[in-house]
Every structure is written in C-alpha cells, then in structure tokens.
Amino acid sequence: MAAVTLWIANLCRSDPGYGGWAYVRKMDGETGAAAIKGAAGGERRTSSAKMSLTALTEALESLTDLPPETAVTLRFLDPALAGQLVAADGDYATAEPEVWALARAAVASRPVLDLVPAPPGEPTSGFLSAWAEFGLDTAKSRGSFKAAIPKPNLMKFPG
C-alpha cells in the first residue's frame, strides 16, 4: 500500500491579522521531483486557527490523485490542532465554522490518517515556517493568494 507524509505549518501576526500557511507532501520511499509537491498561501484579516485549518485542508486536498486508503502521516506545527480535530465544539469550530467544516470533511475522507506533532526545532519545521512566512508577507502586499512551492525549492526540503 502506498504511503505519504504531509507536513503543514501556519503563521499569523496580530490574531486576527496577516496570516500564511504552507504544506509539503512527500510519497514515502520515493525520491525525485515527482515524489514531492507543496504549496503556500496567505490572507489578510485572518486568524491563526483559520490558517492552520487552511493548511490542513489544502494538504489533504492535494491527495486527490491517491486512493482513499493510502496511509497518510500528517506532521503539524500547531500544537492545538490534533485536540481541536477530535473536539466537535472546540475553539477552532467556534472561531472559524466554515473552514472548520472543510477541514473536518477533508479529514473524514482519509480513513488512514496518523496525526503527529512536529517539534519546532526540526529542519522540516524551519522550511515550512519560512514558506508560511512567505505566504503572510505576500498576503500583505497582494491580498489572498495560493501558489505552488517551486520544485527547485522543494528539492531542498529536509524531510
């Protein structure tokens, strides 16, 4: 059975304020440009919860080319995310109901999903945080956006 690892990160300055998110998807056991992809984005007047849920949703939606039974390991920097996903009425659900519903649907579509917190000191965390910050900075000047992380950059991903 195929397996994939997703890494997600988010950043928000002045909650609510400018925010950014990023994800990287890597097929386990594979190498080369075809095995990895990622994206980053950002918004104005947003919250940390929304950026975290957006990163999660975008990462899981990137799996549409894989069968639903593909084993997925989700590594995330937001320390509250896993607890929020199991609480039907947590802070994220209350603060961001629309994005919350999208995130819950994306999680439900993946029956084999392992949630693993990523320590902030890992090299993968630094890479993702830098792209989330790029999303935040770009949202300041251009408004809401989403873009693929260029392959040359992804090939430097330490995961």
Rank of each mutant, 00 (worst) to 15 (best):
18 Y>S: 13
22 A>W: 07
159 G>D: 09
21 W>C: 04
8 I>C: 09
85 L>C: 10
135 G>L: 03
91 D>C: 09
73 T>P: 00
44 R>E: 07
154 L>K: 07
44 R>K: 12
60 L>F: 06
37 K>C: 15
107 V>G: 06
82 A>G: 09
37 K>L: 12
10 N>A: 15
33 A>R: 13
84 Q>S: 10
7 W>Y: 15
144 S>Q: 14
82 A>Y: 01
67 P>F: 01
22 A>M: 05
47 S>F: 12
40 A>W: 14
70 T>G: 04
104 R>M: 09
2 A>Q: 14
64 T>W: 06
49 A>Y: 11
132 A>V: 02
156 K>Y: 02
29 G>D: 08
81 L>A: 01
46 T>V: 06
37 K>Q: 15
78 D>Q: 09
82 A>N: 07
124 T>Q: 15
72 V>A: 08
4 V>T: 09
109 S>P: 00
27 M>K: 12
113 L>T: 00
89 D>Q: 15
94 T>V: 13
78 D>F: 07
49 A>L: 06
113 L>G: 02
125 S>H: 13
37 K>A: 15
112 V>N: 14
5 T>W: 11
17 G>S: 05
88 A>M: 05
159 G>I: 10
30 E>G: 00
52 S>F: 03
106 A>L: 05
113 L>V: 01
153 N>I: 08
136 L>I: 03
63 L>F: 03
42 G>K: 02
89 D>W: 09
56 L>F: 06
20 G>A: 05
25 R>C: 14
37 K>N: 03
129 S>Q: 15
124 T>W: 10
144 S>A: 15
125 S>Q: 13
21 W>E: 02
12 C>L: 05
148 A>T: 12
38 G>P: 06
46 T>W: 07
91 D>V: 13
51 M>G: 03
16 P>Y: 02
58 E>V: 10
66 L>S: 00
13 R>V: 13
24 V>F: 10
113 L>W: 02
151 K>R: 10
108 A>C: 03
95 A>D: 12
44 R>Q: 15
53 L>M: 10
12 C>E: 01
28 D>S: 01
27 M>Q: 14
19 G>F: 06
53 L>K: 11
137 D>Y: 09
8 I>E: 03
39 A>Y: 01
157 F>L: 07
97 P>W: 14
96 E>T: 09
68 P>K: 09
50 K>R: 15
135 G>I: 06
10 N>K: 13
10 N>D: 15
22 A>D: 00
69 E>W: 07
12 C>Y: 04
79 P>N: 03
96 E>C: 14
112 V>K: 14
91 D>W: 15
78 D>C: 11
22 A>H: 01
80 A>S: 06
59 A>I: 04
71 A>D: 07
124 T>G: 04
153 N>K: 13
90 G>M: 12
124 T>K: 08
83 G>F: 04
158 P>N: 09
11 L>G: 00
156 K>V: 01
124 T>L: 08
21 W>Y: 13
77 L>V: 04
121 G>E: 15
43 E>S: 13
130 A>I: 00
109 S>V: 00
88 A>N: 10
49 A>D: 11
29 G>S: 06
146 K>E: 14
117 P>S: 07
82 A>M: 04
54 T>F: 05
155 M>H: 02
148 A>W: 08
141 S>K: 11
14 S>P: 01
31 T>A: 13
115 L>V: 03
93 A>G: 08
51 M>D: 00
104 R>D: 02
70 T>S: 02
